[in-house]
């Protein structure tokens, strides 16, 4: 059935705009995605490695200490990128959920499923590094303030998505239920973002905003920026790797996957 649909798309006539739409449409089906991502993956991997190595050495070895926190400020270079990318990956999961529920595009279901474990790990990393930083700085490993609690909720949402999607009967109904959970969980993202502004929290407000200059000198935010880019690339790389594996798993009966095995 899937192969028939593919063939129909290929013969569709149309102008440039239609072809562009066609390109995205084709990307939504497993095989073209697999082929294109095979080209993108090594590039992403190399870029990830470069930015994480450069960022880590810069941040841990050369960035200055803070006048109050001293050397423990370096935890920020792991904590902030992991928290940012964790939230972005949830955002991506939610959007994938919307696309899957409305258009039933298979790859959106796969994208959602593959992002969840990475997002959960990053959230966990943000929580752990935050606790390690909090002990010397605040005097407590954990406080039930709005920012910390909503981030913990984010972690549980990721876990919920992972558990639900791995339900024994991995049918499309399970995929829809998971997508629904991912979409509803989007509500948590603005709560995390604005928690430090809406309520009195122990967690400090963001040092960065779109409208004002950062409350941190360039020799600190530049390595931080490199680390953030590195974490985004890392997410992209691992996510794409997982998506490719999942595609092979789901399509293992189809002709084109078998022909890969032959090679």
């Amino acid at each position: 059935m899937k192969r028939m649909v593919n063939r129909k798309q290929k013969t569709e006539p149309g102008g440039c705009a239609l072809k562009m739409g066609n390109f995205f449409h084709r990307l939504g089906s497993p095989r073209p995605f697999y082929e294109l991502s095979g080209v993108v993956l090594p590039v992403a991997g190399v870029l990830t490695l470069i930015s994480l190595v450069v960022g880590s050495i810069w941040a841990l070895g050369f960035a200055p200490p803070d006048y109050q926190q001293g050397e423990s400020v370096r935890i920020m270079y792991i904590h902030v990128p992991s928290a940012i990318v964790a939230q972005s990956s949830y955002m991506m999961m939610g959007i994938a959920g919307v696309i899957f529920l409305i258009w039933r595009i298979k790859i959106a279901d796969i994208a959602l499923q593959c992002a969840a474990p990475i997002g959960a790990s990053l959230t966990f990393l943000a929580l752990v590094t935050g606790a390690i930083w909090g002990k010397p700085t605040w005097g407590a490993w954990w406080v039930w303030d709005a920012r910390l609690t909503s981030t913990l909720v984010l972690f549980f949402l990721f876990i919920g998505v992972i558990v639900l999607r791995s339900a024994k009967d991995g049918s499309e109904a399970v995929g829809r239920a998971t997508a629904m959970l991912a979409v509803v969980g989007l509500v948590n993202l603005p709560i995390i973002k604005f928690s430090v502004d809406w309520w009195f929290t122990l967690h400090q407000p963001s040092s960065f905003s779109l409208t004002e200059s950062p409350s941190m000198p360039a020799e600190m935010w530049l390595p931080l920026l490199v680390m953030v880019i590195g974490f985004y690339l890392f997410f992209f790389f691992t996510w794409m790797y997982r998506v490719r594996t999942e595609i092979l798993k789901r399509e293992h009966r189809s002709q084109w996957v078998r022909s890969i095995d032959d090679v």
Binding site: P64, P65, V73, T137, S206, S207, S215, E219
Partner: peptide, 17 residues
Amino acid sequence: EEVLAKHDENYMPPEVM
């Protein structure tokens, strides 16, 4: 019973301070 220090959003190298 417990005193926690709140950190603000400003970061600075000690020399600048």
